[in-house]
Amino acid sequence: MAAQAHNAERLPIRAQEDVVLIRQTVRDFAKQLGMSLVDQTKIVTAASEIARNTLIYGGGGWVRIEVLESNPRRGVRLIFEDQGPGIPDIERALQDGFTTGNGLGLGLGGARRLSNEFEIVSRPGEGTRITLIRWKL
């Protein structure tokens, strides 16, 4: 059976305050799903990293937060989208310590480690879409 998504919420990423609201919304979703505190914290932290990247490197964008049901599993799926310059070398961007800004270069690789499923689709000049899933264990 294909995965079904529901309870979706779409939030803008235009300012630093939006990143905080996204963290809180993702926390609410994870809590409602009955995730453990550690799992909640992992998906919230991953969301924070990617939301900041969307803001700084993507020039802002949107996130879609939803409950995903793929019988018998349930999880939280986050889809971040921007119309920024794109990521030219995704493999390199995923390496710890690689950054084109002045951060630590842990955002993408760290967020991937904190997710159960992680996908980046990026086209130079068109934008980036990053999808994260954390299943309730």
Partner: peptide, 9 residues
């Protein structure tokens, strides 16, 4: 409830 790479840094 969360410390990400920015707050950690």
């Amino acid at each position: 409830e969360m410390v990400d790479s920015f707050i950690g840094r």
